[in-house]
Simulated scan of single mutants.
Amino acid sequence: MKNKLILGTVQLGLDYGINNKSGKPSLQKAFDILHLAYDKEIRILDTAEAYGDSQEVIGKFQKENPNKVFKIITKLAANHSLQKGDLSKQIQRDCKILGVNQLYGYMFHNFESFKNNAYFYNELLLARESGIIKKAGISLYSNEEIKDVLDNYPDFDFIQIPFNALDNASKRKTLLIRAKNMNMEVHTRSVFLQGLFFKNGNNLPEVLNPLKTYIEEFESIKLKSGINTETLALQYVLEKEYIDFVLVGVENTEQLMNNLIICDQKVNIPHDSIDAIDVKEINLLNPSNWN
């Protein structure tokens, strides 16, 4: 299932994640991650203008390794200062930084900034027609946002949404199947909920204490199934037939290798049990609400 993996690169440009112990890697370690990803047949990278110097790191890698060309998805910064008519020039700037002639995908970084600049929708579609991007997408959080896009902006090629053992099929499945029926690709992120699953419900920031019950429920399923945290969390998402790609971020090559090994394992994921986890405090499933 590793052909469904997209390598997220926010960790290459920023200290990121509630469970991140090593911080932002050096340029050489970032290159080691990218080399391993390419050698193991991962071909798509996810980055953003807002991810520190992630785009610059990728651009340097592409320039120094012309035989290892990734497909790259990047995102318009939510706090951009672009005016109407400027989007194409911004995409061209990103291409130059990333060392590519065409972006595999270009996304709006969040729903709010998109709605505040909805005229960029047609500009993005024109960029696709011109060939400077292959696919147009948008990053979303809530089901209300997904519904709005499906109802009113059907020409997006893909949506990127959170999906994991807590933000699960009971919350998302119906809408994602609808997106698939509209020929939209479904890309998912937050498979480990920024590392929250590895805390086992312990040492949580006070704001996340309401999630402890659900994390313990996940832990119980893990113990009954005899499957470790990484495998249970990742394969749960990878095995959903209505999900096209799963974005994973890593801090080092060891984590990436572990994810690749998990993709090749044959285990029986207890989907029904995980699907039954029903988080009521859905606002806490969005890491931007953790501060």
Rank of each mutant, 00 (worst) to 15 (best):
F245W: 10
I159F: 00
V149K: 00
F156L: 13
D151A: 04
Y38W: 09
D151V: 00
F163E: 07
A233I: 05
I215M: 11
Q55T: 07
H35R: 06
G226D: 08
D46T: 06
S142C: 06
A165P: 01
R189P: 15
L140V: 03
E251V: 07
L76T: 09
I262M: 03
A233L: 07
H271Y: 06
V246I: 14
I282G: 06
I282W: 00
I261M: 14
C263A: 13
D278N: 15
I33S: 10
K147H: 00
E241S: 15
E123S: 08
E129F: 03
K63R: 15
N181P: 00
N181A: 08
D32M: 11
I227E: 11
G99F: 08
L285S: 08
Q83T: 08
S81F: 07
I159H: 00
N122Q: 13
A30H: 09
S139M: 09
Y119M: 09
S54W: 01
E281F: 02
I42F: 07
T174A: 12
A37Y: 03
Y236F: 14
R93Y: 09
R93W: 03
K29W: 03
L238M: 13
G59V: 06
N252R: 02
N79A: 13
S288F: 05
N117K: 04
L140R: 04
Y106W: 09
Y214G: 13
A50L: 08
K2M: 08
K89N: 12
F120T: 12
D39W: 02
V186R: 01
F197R: 13
H80T: 09
N122K: 12
I73Y: 12
D46I: 04
L256Q: 10
A165C: 15
D32F: 07
N110M: 10
L176H: 05
E49Y: 12
R128D: 04
A233N: 09
E219F: 01
K224H: 11
V267Y: 04
D167Q: 06
G201L: 06
D148K: 01
E219D: 14
V207I: 14
K240F: 01
P210H: 07
I6W: 05
D264G: 10
Y38C: 11
L223A: 14
D167A: 09
S225K: 03
S81I: 08
G226V: 05
A169D: 15
F70I: 10
Y242E: 10
D86S: 13
I221L: 11
G17A: 04
L196P: 07
S22I: 09
Y214D: 11
L260M: 04
L36I: 02
C95D: 06
D275L: 13
L175N: 00
A233W: 02
D275N: 15
K24W: 05
M1D: 07
E123M: 06
N258Q: 12
T229F: 03
T253W: 02
K212E: 11
R43C: 04
I227Q: 14
N65W: 01
K171I: 15
L150E: 01
D155H: 02
N110K: 06
V10R: 15
Y51L: 04
E216M: 11
S113P: 02
I42R: 09
L126E: 13
A78G: 10
